[in-house]
Write a protein that binds this DNA or RNA. Structure first.
Length: 556
RNA sequence: GCGUCCGUAGCUCAGUUGGAUAGAGCAACGGCCUUCUAAGCCGUGGGUCGCCCGUUCGAGUCGGGCCGGACGCACCA
């Protein structure tokens, strides 16, 4: 049992005891408030504090000071040095120093396992993210989604959840037709059969389509000039698609993003799409009007009903999405998480409406939104890529600042905040740059180990951590003790930025320790304990960076 | 007009189911290398938490109303 839980329980027991002792009365319908323990904002306020005396003032009909005194006198714990009443009604708990040493010793002994929480034995949670159309290059917005999604997957796994990650490939419908005519036009152009003037108006104009056409020519030459137009278009569709998908996978891999499953929209057409429409028709959630089929999403709070099959008989994107989400629900996940760009928020209601209509628990579907990314260079907003004339491709960002900095910067802010990405700062090789700052702390520790090993300063198997009494050492130990709780919180809130922040904080505490506490040149038992401390510190920094998908170099 | 998100130091942002004197980084200014990486450390200044009203013992946090910004409001995806 964690010290926090022990404290909570003894506070609750003490509160109950005040009632038993007849000090306070609890009315029939009144309940004791939950015990909230927090780490106080200032060290003088102790190791933990609770506002219980204030929270319970109402049900006890007594002033907080009186409540605090009564509770204080009923708590006897060997781990506690003293309890003080402070402020408007806080109870501050001061732990005996042995508590943190005992806790730290357990962490030290856990070694590489520290940071991996026990399995929660939950039904698998599915996280679907990126899911960009395979019709062009991933841009920086996708990059933010990729960084966030993969970090959330890592964090939730560390927190003990079973996770499956998935990418939904929109490889059917309109956008594939556009890809086809675009690749076809570039192919014909490159082989001198067409000019720029022939390029279809609504085609994809990006340069990457030319690259795709070039690769097709490199492979198959001009052979599609000598077949029927239909055959050529079919070839352009398939080859273009395969090429785009391969590029997309390549970028994601370089960005340290992997998926457990790739789900092709094509597999839903036409059977699964038709089937979900039939089911919805049968239960009256779909009706016909103006030659189209409409989902009655207004029954579930939507502004208007939505078309699922167009007048021309073609299903809409929504129709496929209903079939896809139905499929996901039927796979039996405990929770479905989608990470979408903020520009899709208007879409939530209709998808949830369809799932509710189909009898699924729409609350199991959690949709997280990602706000936009704005890149700044020399203080100026960078809008377009010079090369592609379009949104900035993720690979250009990776080339410019590197994968580590790109991921770290994407994960510094909460997802629902717009992100201003400072390219100059991301490239700086100094402590101004937060990613270098954290990595440097890790490298510094590795460097100390290289030197101490050479000087035969060794860490014993069982160092005496009680020797670590400097405030810089205590602060660092306390931060390390917090780590697993931080993971838990980050997982619960789907908030990778909490880990990014934590990494910066522990790095800062290490640098302060480095300033105050030397290892080489001190008495061997103390050196040994300090080596133990920095060994765990290095592990935690590396572990946190791994969760973020950022490397932890051993030298810089 | 409607919906979602945002508004906290000059800039970018944290602020743990409402709690103690609102924090961090950058920028500015001033210090620290004969000793484990100065890619580091220490110090100083800097705030009407967009505005108003309400709920509460207590509001940056909750509710209502304004103001400002981003995004969305297709038989596109």
């Amino acid at each position: 049992m964690q010290i926090k839980d022990i404290l909570s329980k003894s506070i609750l027991d003490a509160a109950k005891k005040t009632v038993e002792d007849g000090i306070f009365k609890l009315a029939e319908n009144d309940k004791l408030p939950d015990i909230l323990l927090e780490v106080p904002p200032k060290k003088e306020f102790g190791d933990f504090a609770t506002n219980f005396a204030m929270q319970s003032a109402k049900v006890f009909h007594a002033n907080p000071r009186k409540i605090a005194e009564e509770i204080k006198s009923r708590i006897q714990l060997e781990q506690i040095d003293k309890i003080e009443f402070a402020g408007a009604g806080f109870l501050n708990f001061y732990l005996k120093s042995t508590v943190i040493y005992d806790t730290f010793k357990k962490i030290f002994n856990a070694g590489e396992n520290y940071g991996q929480l026990p399995n929660k034995n939950n039904a698998t949670i599915q996280i679907e993210y990126v899911s960009a159309n395979p019709t062009g290059l991933l841009h920086v917005g996708h990059g933010r989604g990729a960084a966030a999604g993969s970090a959330i997957v890592n964090i939730m796994r560390a927190a003990g959840y079973n996770i499956q990650s998935e990418y939904y490939i929109n490889d059917a419908g309109n956008q594939m037709d556009k890809l086809t005519i675009s690749v076809n036009a570039r192919y014909l152009q490159l082989l001198g059969q067409q000019t720029e003037a022939d390029f279809p108006e609504d085609g994809y104009k990006g340069e990457d389509i030319i690259d795709t056409a070039k690769r097709i020519i490199d492979r198959d030459g001009d052979k599609y000039l000598h077949v029927s137009e239909e055959e050529r278009l079919n070839a352009m569709r398939e080859l273009g698609y395969q090429d785009k998908l391969a590029e997309l996978k390549k970028d994601l891999k370089n960005f340290r993003v992997e998926f457990d499953n790739w789900f092709s929209e094509r597999t839903l057409h036409p059977a699964a799409v038709n089937e979900s429409i039939e089911v919805l028709k049968k239960i009256g959630a779909i009706y016909e009007q103006d030659g189209a089929l409409w989902l009655k999403s207004t029954d579930y709070g939507d502004d208007k009903d939505r078309v699922v099959v167009r007048e021309n008989g073609e299903p809409t994107y929504l129709a496929a999405d209903i079939a896809y989400h139905k499929n996901k629900f039927e796979r039996g996940f405990g929770e479905l998480i989608n990470i979408w760009g903020a520009d899709h928020h208007g879409y939530v209601c209709r998808v949830k409406a369809a799932m509710s209509a189909l009898g699924f628990d729409a609350d199991k579907l959690k949709i997280l939104f990602l706000q936009m990314v704005a890149l700044y260079r020399s203080g100026e907003l960078v809008k377009m890529s010079k090369r592609s004339g379009n949104a900035i491709p993720l690979r250009e960002l990776m080339e410019e600042v590197g994968t580590d900095a790109a991921r770290f910067f994407f994960l510094m802010r909460s997802m629902e905040s717009q992100l201003d990405f400072d390219l100059d700062l991301a490239k700086k090789k100094s402590s101004d740059n937060p990613v270098y700052y954290v990595q440097y702390a890790h490298a510094r520790i590795c460097s100390i180990f290289r030197q101490t090993t050479e000087m035969n300063i060794v860490m014993e198997d069982n160092p005496n951590f009680n020797l670590l009494i400097h405030s810089s050492e205590i602060d660092l130990i306390n931060k390390i003790i917090d780590y697993e709780e931080e993971i838990e919180k980050a997982a619960q809130d789907y908030a990778p930025q909490k880990i990014t922040r934590y990494a910066q904080e522990i790095a800062a505490l290490f640098h302060a320790f480095y300033r105050d506490c030397r290892i080489i040149g001190v008495e061997s038992n103390l050196a040994s304990a300090r080596l133990g401390l920095i060994k765990v510190t290095a592990h935690v920094i590396k572990h946190a960076l791994n969760l973020l998908g950022v490397s932890a170099p051993e030298s810089m």
